[in-house]
Design a protein around this nucleic acid. Sequence first.
DNA 1: CCTGGAGTTGTCCTA
DNA 2: TTAGGACAACTCCAG
Length: 480
Amino acid sequence: MDKSRVSVLWFRQDLRIADNPALIEACKDGSIVPIYILDDKSAGDWKYGAASRWFLFEALTDLNKLLNNQLLFFEGDASKVLIDIVKEVGAEGVYWNRCYEPWAIERDSRIKKSLKVLNISVQSFNSSLLWEPWAVLKKDGTPYKVFTPFYRKGCLVSSSPRMPLEIPSNINCVAFEGSKSLSELRLRPKNNWYKKFENIWDVSSDGVAAKLRGFLDEGLDVYREGRNFPSKKYVSALSPYLRFGMISPNMVWYAAISEKTLKSEDRNLDTFLSELGWREFSYYLLYHFPQLPSQNLQSKFDAFPWHKDPDDVLEIWEKGLTGYPLVDAGMRELYQTGYMHNRLRMVVGSFLVKNLLIDWREGEKWFWDCLVDADLASNSAGWQWIAGCGADAAPYFRIFNPITQSEKFDSEGEYIRKYVPELSKLPSKYIHAPWQAPEEILKHNNVELGVTYPLPIVDIKESRQAALEAFSRTKLQVQA
DNA sequence: CCTGGAGTTGTCCTA
DNA sequence: TTAGGACAACTCCAG
């Protein structure tokens, strides 16, 4: 290694030093200038939302520690910032791990060209996907549109994911003047909204290791069924760490597999791995269909008669005041923790799209702002799936009933009690649909409907019927 | 080109 | 009480 040789290592969504291909290669090459650039402008509509910015701040703080406070922070058009740095430090090469958002792909290929013109070598690596989206295709060369064949035939049959890589033994950082401090990036929200998050998320490499360990010990063995119950800690909750690359999917994949080597067959393991497969599928769809975040994948939905929200219905949903306890619990979990259990994401999504008939893109935007794991691929693919307009979407007649879901997956109301405390004293029998409770039971438990807790915003039966009719009209228009 | 089987997560009604 | 079929037909995918 030649220490006098200097490369720029550009951290983006790979905020870790373990299993980091770009870091390893850059360190082999000589000394590094490790940088982070907050580039809101290039991201356009999809610059980080408020909750993500809080998480990002913490993640960068941790990464900076791991790099002995040598991480350099910048803000602005990444293309300009990066080229200025390269010139100033006389770097011979630039290293980064790939991003897959359409805007990032466009920006990065532009930067690559500019650097090549300057005779700077650029190397990019895969650090965030188990399979590159362009490497998985059907025999006819076109992309898969259905998950199961994509995952089973496309991914699993092709090649094993890369094994995780070691932390480089020597990371030599070069000093540089003229960077900003992390706090100057103003990533923390102005209000104290994020304070609640601090008690919930340990945003550090130790924190993510503990999270993974906890899941392998407590969740994996019962994952297949257990993941359905929002009051239980049977899901991994690794999503925000994966989103910012504090852990790689490869690390999670092999950690889960190695936990199970003694059992020849394990459906819980397979189900968990397939969830990582769904993350891959989302990125895959985003890569091959870059309009995924903003346009119906099935264009017949373009004419769908979404309600234009005359009654501030959207805001009622956002605040968790719909009068359906499970829906409200989910929405409040989101606002209070920056996270929502997977089953609740389906329940509240189905409610917004199919009971309130509000455009899925409204829900997508709210999630984008509130989720610490807001990920363009997963968020967009998830909303298209629940709305039924996606590539491999839920059929339109699959409409979640929030009461049935509540009785099935939160039968004792533990989850509801936690996030909708005004109902916490109600007996389990009545907590799923409090308007059906006898008056004296409500009174005795300090619930006054319409005052301490809202009456249902819509009738489930009627709104379901209205949705079915609207969706079947959409279908008929295509045939005509 | 043709063919047949299949497609994350549900709900409701009926027998 | 419970289990099974309807819901809707279409597109996707592999042989």
